[in-house]
Amino acid sequence: MTNGSGEIAPILQIRDLRTSFVTSAGIVRAVDGVSFDVRPGEIFGLVGESGCGKSATCRSIIRLLPSHATTEGEVLLNGEDLLTAGAEAMRQVRGGEISMIFQDPMSALNPVLRVGEQVAEAVQAHRGVGRRAAWARALELLRLVGIPAPERRLREYPYQFSGGMRQRVLIAIALAGEPNVLLADEPTTALDVTIQDQILKLIVRLQRELGMSVILVSHDLAVIAHVCQRVAVMYAGQIVEQGEVRTVLRAPRHPYTMGLLASLPGIGARERYLQPIAGAPPSLLDPPSGCRFHPRCTYAVEQCRSWTPELLPVGPGHGAACWRQDAIRARVETTRIAVRETA
């Protein structure tokens, strides 16, 4: 349904993003040549195993990285490169244009400040309003994210909130500056299963009501399948497959995506049995040569060991970085036939 919106100018363009950390063990290339666009009003999914560079990608976008990190490439917000923006310009972007919510709501709030204070200061950071007005706005925001008894809750401290409620507070903080883009870094991972669904629904509802774009980072394809329009699959610091969620999930063109799907109870049932991907993600200190997935890939051939595949179109708005397209297409066909026959 969003196929036609391809012509609309993207709000955020990531171009050949490379982020590396200098550590005592060597240089860790956490993000290694990542490019994607985020369109206005869409939820864009970023999926992959932990440590594949999803979070680092998000943090690179608003430059929230430790000092031993270096970032190259371009992050264009409405055409302006954020990576070369000055400190004050960047401060205004953070929370004002692009907000971010984090994985662990238990530690993402300051334990010694009242919740209202933490929301209100986010309001004040982007609007020239007084303390009183900022607190009034904070109250509205708490109401907006569905926190019961917001008048009382404003005056409480984070330790008095449950995990789900804290994540709501963090979302309220993120919305305080009325941003156009929300980066949600595993926003439900640390929460109970029942709460996860509430928070996801809240994010989807707010995205619709406020017309924001959202980048939703998750290791869980089911979550992505549930709420995103488009998705990029990351592996070892690179995007290996990207496209409409429906297309990517129905007809994956990268063995890693296929592996992720196979290890998923709901969708992977088509494959009859749960199949975790063999092996562990590679070290980003010294990634494998050629295609980074080849040591774990059942399709790998000699070519995969020596040559790095690029993200090439495999269908409308669909790209994959894999040399073995013929073999994969054949395999997908046989699976489809098998599914049809059993049905």
Binding site: R94, F102, N110, A125, G177
Partner: peptide, 11 residues
């Protein structure tokens, strides 16, 4: 982590 949150707010 809350320092990240504070920075992400644009303080």
């Amino acid at each position: 982590d809350f320092v990240d949150t504070a920075r992400a707010k644009g303080l």
